[in-house]
Design a protein around this nucleic acid. Sequence first.
RNA 1: GUGGAAGUAGCUCAGCUGGUAGAGCGCUGGACUGUGGCUCCAGUCGUCGCGGGUUCGAUCCCCGUCUUCCACCCCA
Length: 420
Amino acid sequence: MRYRAPRGTRDILPEESWKWEKVQRAFEDTARRFGYRDIRLPVFEQTELFARGIGDATDIVRKEMYTFADRKGRSLTLRPEGTAGTVRAYIEHNMGESARVTKLRYFCPMFRYERPQAGRYRQFWQWGLEAIGSMSPSVDAEIIHFCVSLFTNLGIEGSVAKLNSAGCKSCTPAYNEALREHLAPRLDEFCPDCSERYERNPRRMFDCKNESCLALLADAPSILDSLCDECRQHFESVLEYLDRMSVPYEVDKGLARGLDYYTRTIFEVHYPGLGAQSALCGGGRYDDLVEELGGKPTPAVGVSAGVERLMLAYESESGGTGQEPGPEIYIVSMGERAEREAAGLAAGLRADRSVELDHQGRSMKAQMREAGRLGARVAIIVGEDELERGAVSVKDMETGDQVEVELDRLNEAVEEKLAK
RNA sequence: GUGGAAGUAGCUCAGCUGGUAGAGCGCUGGACUGUGGCUCCAGUCGUCGCGGGUUCGAUCCCCGUCUUCCACCCCA
């Protein structure tokens, strides 16, 4: 019996994880520049929080949650996304009392019971941002700018921001009705999927992949023409801010999102190289969610993104190629006395340099090969002959130059080589 | 949840409608008895995903199952 990682989960091994570290660092640096502070939340929450927050009608709540009962019979669920938990924490800790706008970020695993596919797992990572407490369209624009900015920092070119409005409580229901009314006469000509979308969320029909369905939608009313004055103004204002920030975007009147809580601005950023799973991130406003979850009425905007997909995009661009960083120094030793000397030298050098050495008593040739394979810039060779003279050899692995130095001059010699 | 493809060495893959497995890369050692990256030589590795069936005999055929991949639903 051999154990394997459960379906839809996977191990991120060191050969790969060094790239994850780079991406996470880029995310954290960018988030800090934009003023978003780290928040670390529980991996599971009361099931009710997600059911209420994300919406009973969504696929996530209907069929994708990892729900279990704990030993006292409480129903808990592994978080399928980050916004509900963040809002819960915001309310629980009265974060709105001490700041006008609360800007938070996270980078952590999420769980959804789905059929796995490339870039889609049952345990997957998301990074996300939430800005709670401001109605200003400048926050919407700031978050979209953040996404584009992060992707650019990672060398990902050709991503496209698409945005639309989801309206608000006062204009959405009217639009949905108008849309249904317009489509009703020819409903039987749509595909079965669209028929179901018609019932649950007719706006989703716009992203059907069926040409004939899209043709039938050609003269359907646009949400953008049905917005109330406040929503229209807000949307236009977001676009103005984006123009002012030089953020490229496309208005996509067919864009719809899967979660119930979105209001007004909704957006996605796509990277076309990823096939069917091309959305790198998605987000929008959720002005009613804080109140819905028991807080004071508080407007908010957020975004979340799949890290696995981001990694796929990152690796297909120049930034994701290259080699895992190796040690700066490799210490080669021959003989027992030399091994002990090498251990002492490593201990000292490790105060401010990365140092590797052999732990298996291998041949010098093997140790040199290891030093080359790891990409060490300097090899320190500790041999019996040198030790007799109180010295070691320092070899520059790039040029092959080698000099013998006395032990008390080793630090200078190494620093000199590494400084180049 | 629906439809399709695939699982053979650490990795990438070959294996003739059935006769108990191979290559390249990697790894280890040597040529070079204390010097990596090039070259050459040698060696190492397999419950052929798992379980059952057919057969004298199954990596190959049949059934089931697990996993991955592709498309859909949906989404990150």
